[in-house]
Amino acid sequence: MNYTTFRYLLVLFSMVLACDVHASSSVSLDNLGKLSLTYTPINAVSAMEKPASTGIVKVLPGSPLRIISPMDPQKIEYLVAHGQNVKQNQRIAMLSGSEVHHFRDNLAAKTALLEITKSRFDKNRELASVNAISQDKWLNIAQQYYDAQLTWGHLNHFAEMFEPHSDEDMGYLLAPSKGIFMLPEQAPTDIETQATETQLGAIVNPNSIRLTTLVKESEKEFVEAMYTDSCSVEIEKIEKISHRFFVRVWSAPLPEGCALQLGAQVNVRVKLSVSAHSVPAASVFYLHGQASIFVRHDDTLKAVPITLIGNTDNDSAVFTAPNLANNDEVLTSSISAVQGILLGLGGIE
């Protein structure tokens, strides 16, 4: 058999096969008797929803303003609730105990020490410039001054958030900026504090509160938004490190009225961008194990195989299929009866 003959036979075989497939997957409308036949056009779909892992409302890593105290007060009485919005300089806690007293004394001492060291520093600066004092001595004076300034500055930064009380053992902690106050045990702890410091809380900028969830690796390219029962929000960040089968995605700042509180754990659906079609879910049937729909072509219904990729909602199936045009009409009633015809059922002998 030469190549031309072989090619001819191959084409012929393909045609026979195609005719056979067509014959076994098409039904003439004339053969459908009085079955109720309704149609709906195929719609184009650019996006669809899918369930994701649980979503959590979290603060973007690194964004909270931590309130670090140079002392460890014996008692902290929080005046605002965890997660409460606070204004700058609003009293957020009453600190009390001997440590407060020590802090105040320490601050006063460090202030005095700073003044002394500063005076000495200022006085000796000119002497040093004319080499009236030795370099070693000047270096020592300057070192003492800068150490005192640093120590004072450290205490003073906290003192700016500290409103002294008439009682020496007490004082108020003031909010360093406006935002959402978080208790220390609930605040992000991704930056370690020093042994001598105590975290008294954190202030979170509302814009850094985000919804985050895990999506499948294969879907990360297509994720556009996240949905909860109460709101939808665009995706802002997609992490580049996998969590086993998933990748974490972060939303944009939560819009007003989203009713999602920080720390909330919610069921999330993700919106994926797709290029597909949708039809009523009830118009999909299975023929020899293959999901199909009946598409009307003139006076014939043809079972067209489709690849289901999801649902826009419970009533619509999203699928891809080659050679289908939007507005092609798909059968939406009596599908099982037409399917029965293809399976060889029917007729009264």
Binding site: G33, L35, S336, A337, G340, L345, G346, I348
Partner: peptide, 10 residues
């Protein structure tokens, strides 16, 4: 009459 309802064994 039922012959007009194909796709089902009757």
């Amino acid at each position: 009459a039922l012959a007009h309802f194909p796709g089902m064994n009757i």
